[in-house]
Amino acid sequence: MLGKTAGGLFWMARLLERAENTSRMIETGQRIALTRAGSGADDWLSVLQAAAVAYGYQQKHAEVLPELAIDWMLRDPDNPSSVMAVITQARHNARLVRTALTHEAWEAVNSFWMLLKEALARKVATRDLPKVLSLIRERNALVRGAILGTMLRNEIYDFIRIGTFIERADNTARILDVKYYVLLPSAAAVGSRLDNVQWDTILRSVSGEGGYRLTIGPDVTPMGIAQFLILDKRMPRSLNFCCAKLRDNLNYLATDYDLRLPCHQQADTLCRRFMTHDVAAIFDYGLHEYVQEVLGHLGKLSHQIEIDYRFYG
C-alpha cells in the first residue's frame, strides 16, 4: 500500500472520530444548559476547551454565548475544527484513498458529507439542533458500519482503526485534562451540586453514563470516574481500551509485514507504563501530570507511525 494511502486512511478515521466527539461535546453542553439556570457561559467555555476549539473561539468572540459556541463548533468557516470542516477534510482523505475503500464505505462517507453540507448550509436553530446532532451520530455510525461490514481485515483496516483509537484516546485524555480539577480529592470533599453536574458532564461527553452505572455502580465519585475513563477494559472510550486497541492494531501490521518498528515499541511502552497501575497510584502521582504525559505520548506515537509507515515524502 502507498504510504500516502495509509496516511489518508489514518486521517480519514481520525477526522470522522473527531467530528463525532465534537458533536457529543455540543450535546453535553446543551444538556447542561437545559438542566440549570443562568447563561452557562462557563460551561460552554469548558465544552469548547474539551473540544480543543476554545482558543480560536476566543480570538473571534469576546463573549461565550451558547448559540455562538454551537455555531463555532458545528460550522463557523473560521474554525478549521468545526464538524463541517472536519467532515470535509475526512471526505477529502476518503477521495484520496478511494481505491482502498469499498464502494459502501466510500458512499457512506460521501453521503455523510453531502447531507451535512445541506444541514449546515445555514445557522442551526436551537429546535433543529437535536436533529442535526443525531444526523452526525447516525451518519458516523453508518460509515463505521460500512467499514466494519465490508472491509477486509487487512492493513487498510488496521490503519483506519489506528487512526480511530489514537483520536479517541486523545479526546478522552483531553476531557480529563480540562476537567481534572473536579476529580481531585479536594474537590470531592466539597460534594456540592455543582460537582455532580460537572461529573455528569464528563460522563456524558464520552457517552458513559449508562456504562458507568453498569460497571462501577450508581454512585458517581471522582475515583470511580477516573477508574472508568482511564483504566476500564470494557469501556470503549477509556484510555486503557484505546491504547490496547492501538497496540493490537499496530501489532497486526507488524505481523503482516513481519517487521517491528519504533512505533510498536512506543505503543508497548504506552500500555505498560500508563495502563497497569491502579487508580489510587495515578492520583498519588498526580492526575494532571499523568494525563499530560499520556497526551504527550500519544502525540509522539502518532508522529512515529507517520514516519514508520511513510505517510509523507
Binding site: 502507498l2 509485514y257 509507515y309
Partner: peptide
C-alpha cells in the same frame, strides 16, 4: 495503485512508489 508525482522516486534504476514497506 493510484499514485501522484510526489509518491514516486527513482530507486535502483526504476521509477518506484513509496509504500508503507
Amino acid at each position: 495503485e493510484l499514485v501522484e508525482g510526489h509518491d514516486l522516486r527513482i530507486v535502483d534504476g526504476r521509477v518506484a512508489m513509496r509504500t508503507t514497506r
